[in-house]
């Protein structure tokens, strides 16, 4: 049911992408996002697409999970590409009322579609192969320089960890409460919008109540174990770069160089 959402679910595995340092993975993801939006011609876009394909092939995650996560955004992709089609400049090749389609509009649509798809694929790859705790650890480490500006980095990371930790718990809870109310004949499928929204009250109220209860309990449990924030706190697992991480860096650098070269030497398509 609700649990079937593939977007962002961690799947344990032993591939090289799983093993790579989570800090590095986040940086590589950022690099990829920048590259995806800095590819201005088909050659550059081709290089990025090929790189994403390689990462996916190495990720040790069945392809169907990637398709599943694409399914969620297909609607957005279609809408944005259709809108973009009409925003081109130059000689129209097709005209209808005030709408006109130009060659550059079509290029735009293709670029937008490919970019969104690549974006979802690489970010899914990160969340598929990195456990939430690793992810927040990495974010905490990467945000450390912000401490200089008195940003409470550790607290933010802890909040993220807790939030991520409780997503499955709350989903399970929602499932349970839904079952319990359905067992009392709650009808959530039929009726108009207002009726459907109203049908949510018996689920949302118990859910909120239990979320608050859990929060109190967790806070109490943390205080009982003398938790007092990030100062002077050491880590059980500290992250170290390893040999395969340097391959990752090399790979990303190569892609970066490829895209930059394509952008410089080939004329932009959009």
């Amino acid at each position: 049911m609700i649990r079937d959402v593939a977007l962002g679910q961690y799947m344990p595995g032993k591939g090289i992408v799983h093993k790579a340092d989570p800090r590095l993975k986040i940086l590589v993801l950022i690099a990829f996002i920048v590259l995806i939006f800095c590819s201005f011609n088909f050659a550059a876009l081709g290089v990025v697409t090929a790189a994403v394909a390689v990462v996916i092939a190495l990720s040790d995650i069945p392809l169907k999970y990637y398709f599943k996560s694409l399914k969620v955004i297909i609607f957005i992709v279609v809408i944005t590409s259709v809108i973009n089609m009409f925003y081109g400049t130059g000689e129209p090749i097709f005209r209808f009322w005030i709408l006109k389609i130009t060659m550059s509009g079509i290029y735009r649509a293709i670029f937008v579609t490919v970019r969104i798809i690549l974006l979802i694929l690489v970010s899914s790859c990160l969340t598929f192969t990195t456990s939430p705790t690793d992810l927040t650890d990495a974010i905490e480490r990467l945000m450390k320089p912000l401490k200089f500006f008195h940003v409470k980095v550790h607290e933010i990371a802890m909040m993220m960890t807790i939030a991520l930790r409780f997503v499955p718990t709350l989903l399970e809870e929602t499932d349970k409460i839904m079952s319990a109310q359905k067992a009392r004949g709650a009808d959530m499928e039929s009726g108009g919008l207002i009726k459907k929204v109203r049908a949510l009250t018996p689920i949302l109220i118990p859910l909120f109540v239990s979320a608050f209860r859990r929060a109190y309990e967790l806070a109490m449990a943390m205080e009982c174990r003398c938790y007092q924030g990030g100062d002077g706190r050491t880590r059980m697992k500290s992250l170290h770069l390893q040999k395969h991480d340097f391959f990752c860096i090399l790979f990303t650098a190569a892609i970066l160089a490829g895209v930059v070269l394509c952008d410089v030497f080939i004329a932009a398509a959009i």
Binding site: I177, A180, Q181, A183, P202, I205, P206
Partner: peptide, 18 residues
Amino acid sequence: IRFKVGMVFQYPEYQLFD
């Protein structure tokens, strides 16, 4: 069927809402 087979879940107090 759900009206004919009544089901009380584990810790049913967490379903109270009204």
